[in-house]
Design a protein around this nucleic acid. Structure first.
Lengths: 200, 200
DNA sequence: TGTACATCAGTGAACGCGCGTTCACTGATGTAC
DNA sequence: TGTACATCAGTGAACGCGCGTTCACTGATGTAC
């Protein structure tokens, strides 16, 4: 709102997060430099450290925002569906859309060195996984490894497909793609998966 | 073979590539530092530049090796199968196995800034895609976008699933996983996809 | 088989820049009386 | 309502290190005669 910034920026924390998000979306996480963020906001290069203990802390905070945002989006998408399989599919579609619309959040959330620093994010991920299992009503019999013991083949297949599509798009492996094209793709691909899940 | 290295290393180029591969597998591409490679091989920090014009050139060369290796592996895996659908599935499984066994190559090959520097790799990728389409015998009707116009939903679904699984594993999102566990997973997941592809 | 010379693959010292982070400081804002 | 003081959010200068890359050099290897 303030057109002319005075000595005190007022919204610097928020502005730093937003600028970092912009940079990540455009050039990736490695392109985030604290001094560039500061310069872009017309502030000294030491200023960011009044709000974040370190560059890493800034990235983790941003990732936490993203996680909350993602869960919310997926829950909202699933809410409208009676059929559990359709609800599950809607989650997958929403996930891909989120990745395309918010590539910065998505990139942060696929970095285990960043996610690993936030128990909050890990908790959200666990909740989400439990929800998926519940929706698909999958019995968890013996699985391939302890690490994936909680995931049925169906859930994992759906996750791998949506995650893979999301990554292919955000990593630029499919060229330029608009959010609406991404959504169409997500619909088509989850449809291919449909018969296999139903027969589970 | 030579136990004691003399003034001339003799295999430095090869050794640099191997060491870089090791580092990438363990800590990612960003962890490759020319001076660390040199130190690990007991050579001065300027030595690598006798064999590669720059750090980037080294990474591209390594990626080219990886691409050749991958194609070969997938072709070999598909060769034993009569049924085109099974052949296609074998390719997918081989792809995931490759990603797990050779995470360094896989990581390099999913970086478009690196792949983009090598027409050789791009050619190999195009050939491979054509082969997949041919195997699946997919008619290419109107698709979601020009960029993906050559890919049917079935091919893209299979790619997204295998790519997604491979990335989830190599990015550590599924915890520690052995190559044989990975192969089991790949089998299970491609099975889920089966019914949808057959009915295409 | 030995000597002269070109070429190749190393050395080691240094450069230079980018970037995260620190530090003593100062201007602005909020609160007590 | 005004003054004194604590606290907060900036500044700007500097540090220090990591790392890619360059440069003039030198020891080893291969080839011609």
């Amino acid at each position: 709102m303030a057109t002319k910034r005075a000595y005190h920026h007022g919204e610097l924390r928020r502005a730093l997060l937003d600028e970092a998000r912009r940079v990540i979306a455009q050039d990736g996480i490695e392109a985030v430099k604290t001094n560039h963020l500061a310069a872009a906001l017309g502030v000294s290069s030491a200023a960011p450290f009044r709000h974040f203990a370190s560059r890493d802390a800034l990235l983790v905070a941003l990732a936490e925002e993203g996680a909350a945002h993602l869960i919310e989006t997926m829950n909202a998408a699933a809410a409208g569906h009676e059929d559990p399989l359709e609800a599950h599919r809607a989650r997958g579609v929403a996930y891909v859309r989120f990745a395309v619309e918010q590539p910065a959040y998505f990139r942060l959330l696929s970095r285990r060195d960043i996610v690993g620093q936030s128990t909050q994010i890990q908790d959200l991920a666990a909740q989400n996984l439990a929800l998926m299992e519940q929706v698909l009503g999958a019995a968890q019999k013996g699985a391939a490894s302890p690490a994936v013991a909680r995931r049925s083949a169906g859930v994992l297949a759906a996750q791998a497909l949506t995650y893979g599509l999301a990554r292919m798009i955000t990593d630029g492996l499919l060229g330029e793609i608009t959010p609406s094209q991404a959504e169409t793709l997500a619909h088509e691909l989850t449809e291919v998966l449909g018969p296999g899940l139903a027969g589970d």
